[in-house]
Computed example of a mutant assay.
Amino acid sequence: MLKKLIYLLIIALIFIVVAGEKNLNSVKLSEEVAFLPTIEKVQAEPIGFSEKLAAGNPVTIVFLGDYVTSADSLPDGHPNHVSLLTEWLDEKYPEQITVINAGMNANTVSHMKERIASDVLTHAPDLVIISAGLNDALGDWKIPVEEYAKNYRLIVEEIIANGETEVLIRTPNPTTSFKDNLKMLPYMRASSKLASQDKVYLFDFYQVMSNDVHTKKIAQTDLIQNKLYPNTKGQAYLFGEFKNYLTTAFINQ
């Protein structure tokens, strides 16, 4: 009987020890969890172009476009809107802004899409200003508006994919032909829709110039060369309207 009692006591003691170890492990685990710091992963919002500019940080702007943007857009050798904007920015933000003109004559969005890496992203821009549509709608290629919209969207998405670059879309000017302007309207609407994305902005120059022609009685023929492209006066007008947009709606937003 005594042996049986001792045996039962030994079994009970083993059970108590095992149970105690389990509870101790549980307590240790609880303490470890309790003392672990709570870490919240907060992803910092990328600083936008306007904020960098206001902070005095160096910034790079790339202009991507067709003949209207290209450095040789005026046969008389006068500065076009990109050159005028560069001079104005240099005066307003001395030695802070680098401007790259990646405009190229006879370009459609299909052409621009192929040179994004080499002509735009290689400069690590903070802002890319894009203008396209005249050649797509009215040039020799006659790019369907669906293809235009698709390629334009791919361009924008590739540029903003790294999270550090913003895009400003500038619609082109209306022409001196009513019929051609009707052809351009679907392309302008497609361009404007792209500005619904984050980090994509719109300067609707087409609408600005159209409004001025009708309300201020501006003669389009005084601003356009070859029925399509701004002449010296037209480039100066584009510069003035673009500068107004930048200072009132974009840089100081």
Results as ranks from 00 to 15, higher is better:
L2Y: 11
K3S: 14
L5I: 15
I6N: 08
Y7T: 14
I11F: 01
I16L: 15
V17A: 13
N25Q: 13
T38G: 00
E40L: 09
V42I: 13
E45W: 09
P46K: 10
I47V: 14
F49L: 02
F49G: 04
S50D: 08
S50P: 08
E51W: 08
K52D: 02
A54E: 08
A55C: 03
A55L: 14
T60C: 06
V62F: 11
T69E: 04
A71V: 10
S73D: 00
D76E: 07
N80M: 07
L84K: 07
E87S: 12
E87I: 03
L89I: 02
E91W: 01
P94V: 03
I97F: 00
I97W: 00
I97K: 00
T98P: 04
I100V: 12
N101Y: 01
A102M: 00
A106K: 12
T108K: 01
V109G: 09
H111V: 08
A117V: 15
A117F: 10
A117W: 09
L121E: 05
P125V: 09
P125E: 07
P125K: 07
D126R: 01
L127W: 06
V128K: 01
S131Y: 00
N135M: 09
D136F: 07
A137L: 08
A137G: 06
A137R: 03
A137V: 08
D140S: 12
W141C: 11
W141A: 13
K142A: 05
E147A: 12
E147G: 10
A149T: 10
Y152I: 05
E158W: 10
E164S: 13
L168F: 04
I169M: 04
P174K: 06
S177Q: 02
K179M: 06
N181R: 05
L194H: 14
D198F: 09
D198I: 10
L202H: 03
L202E: 07
D204P: 02
S210G: 11
H214F: 15
I218L: 15
A219Y: 09
A219F: 11
D222Y: 12
I224G: 08
N226C: 10
K227H: 14
Y229V: 11
P230K: 06
Q235T: 00
A236W: 05
Y237G: 09
L238R: 10
F239T: 03
F242P: 00
K243V: 01
Y245G: 01
T247R: 10
N252P: 04
